[in-house]
Design a protein around this nucleic acid. Structure first.
Lengths: 332, 332
DNA sequence: CTGAAAGCGCTTACAG
DNA sequence: CTGAAAGCGCTTACAG
């Protein structure tokens, strides 16, 4: 019972065939007689044999591995996307490796090197941004790269992004149309490209409309930050009556500050819009108007591109859809 | 720029040493002169070389891979545990592979076979239960197994579980002490060992105290189910004033049913206790009294055992701690 | 400290 | 259809 994994040779001996035959029995479309294949299959079953993908990957130089690189994977949006990616990859016959980072660029660097070590066929990056040099090394090592919600383009990669700017504009217009007079924009200190896009969109729309808005961006992109900023905003002498939170987590915090701490009615006294459409946005306590991240589509797009042997440099911009619930006043 | 990964031979040529030297330069503690090592390091840097772990794993017969097998990985508790596990594994020098299942036993079977294919050194199972035969095959292939919150013991595995029964008892006592007269027990149709344990504890305590309780268990273990059961329970002619939900997700649903649909005050009109201590339990809208899953400890225990070369069959029962917030009335 | 050689478990031309 | 042989990229005794 020592660690003595079953090998193709064992199966060959047991079945009375060559190990070449065993190999072929496990290769779809290889030329083996049905009889031999059956014999091998029986032997494999009896011995509990599984092809060693490490060895197979080595010789075919395709490991079947795909690295998923992300920070804060316990977060609702992140885990939802990861789930889609993992399931899609598995369904496509690939095996996801999970590399948790701390969103620093150095952390992505390590993650990518890690991925190279395992000769992953690709890496899907959800957090942080690798520099060009690193990307080149990956490419040179035959690795495909897909960047999700990252901003800068990199040669040879697939970049999937949303129309964040547009969402910011829509958020502004929606709040105005709801009759909100004092608008606020809530963000975190993270400063990732997608958050920046939403902020810019909202700002531009406000400028174009000639209205001034309050802005807050401190701390992590979390519920806690939303709670703090919300409390701060609402206790001012000129509290906003319409808030766009760049993230649902932030929005939930703002909503709780409004309701639990100030006894405000939503949307009667305050309208709030979020972004991501995490599960909690649909919970009755929040019933948050938000923008849906098309996680399924993101995953599908990534996997399609990876399945295409000659996927060239590409940027895919996915449309973002507003989910209307009950946190924004309906114009009379 | 074809997929021509850099090899140790390339580095050797570039550095003007043998490929044995290259290998040694990347093996901690190997006997190489500092000079050679430096030369190799420089060459590797210039070429963007990373040791091929597939090949190294093959020859050392230790892949460095650990499979994480779980269903519903986008769920708060699950993703929190996965995050801890992934980070811990990475810190311990292991690489996590993520296999999403659908919690059916057949799905775990496939997952495990998948793991064997990659010669993972271990598999951590969070969902589903492999049968004995399968466990044996894993063991025979030199794979370690850790079962989290699974019930039955399997030879050669590490089993980590919580004192679910005790939690059920504590929930009952807490609700009684809070003065609740009509108690209900809310669960799902999942029937996993941990849920069953909590149910049993609550039931036993009730029987011992001679009080009858209402029970509901339908649907998935989700917010939605909690909302439905809560609505159903609260619209009866004899609504409960104290509810133990076997899971926080369920509890959040019940809480929302009570507040949003029946205008009930919590804990004034209704006391609720959950289990898991997911992030949302701490959000102000819920402020849920619950039992904390020691995810950090679970991960640490698993990784410790995996790091111990001769980890024998073991069952570790972790204590579960009640987190007191505001969803249970404080006895006068 | 260093390198030539054997071997990890597989696959894939190459003959038959 | 089948098997003996070479080779994927690495590591590790084995000599020197």
């Amino acid at each position: 019972m020592k660690r003595a994994p079953v090998t193709a040779q064992d199966v060959a001996d047991y079945a009375g065939v060559s190990r070449t035959a065993v190999s072929r029995a496990f290769t779809p479309g290889a030329s083996v007689s049905a009889e031999t294949r059956a014999k091998v299959q029986r032997a494999a079953e009896a011995l509990g044999y599984q092809v060693n993908h490490l060895a197979r990957g080595l010789i075919r130089s395709e490991s079947g591995l795909v690295a998923l690189i992300a920070a804060e994977i316990e977060t609702p949006y992140r885990s939802a996307l990861l789930s889609q990616l993992a399931q899609g990859l598995l369904a496509a016959g690939k095996t996801p490796i999970l590399i948790a980072t701390d969103r620093s660029d150095d952390s992505v660097r390590q993650a990518l090197q890690h991925a190279i070590s395992y000769r992953t066929e690709a890496a899907v990056i959800l957090s942080g941004m690798p520099d060009s040099a690193l990307c080149d090394i990956c490419l040179r090592n035959g690795m495909r790269l897909v960047l999700v919600n990252r901003d800068e383009a990199r040669k040879g990669t697939l970049q999937i992004r949303l129309d964040d700017h547009e969402a910011g504009v829509t958020a502004f217009n929606t709040l105005r149309r709801a009759g909100c007079a004092a608008l606020a924009l809530v963000s975190s200190a993270a400063g990732t490209p997608s958050l920046a896009g939403r902020i810019a969109g909202f700002r531009h729309a406000a400028e174009a409309a000639g209205v001034t808005i309050q802005e807050r961006s401190t701390g992590a992109t979390s519920y806690q930050t939303g709670l703090e900023i919300g409390t701060d905003l609402l206790s001012s002498t000129t509290p906003p009556d319409g808030i766009f939170c760049v993230t649902d987590l932030l929005a939930c915090g703002v909503l709780d500050a409004a309701r639990c701490r100030f006894g405000l009615g939503v949307p009667a006294d305050l309208s709030v819009i979020g972004f991501d459409d995490i599960a909690q946005a649909g919970w009755e306590s929040y019933a948050l108007n938000t923008f849906a991240q098309p996680t399924g589509e993101i995953a599908a797009t990534a996997i399609d591109w990876l399945s295409d042997p000659d996927g060239e440099t590409r940027v895919v911009q996915l449309p973002v859809r507003m989910v209307w619930r009950k946190s924004v006043r309906v114009p009379a």
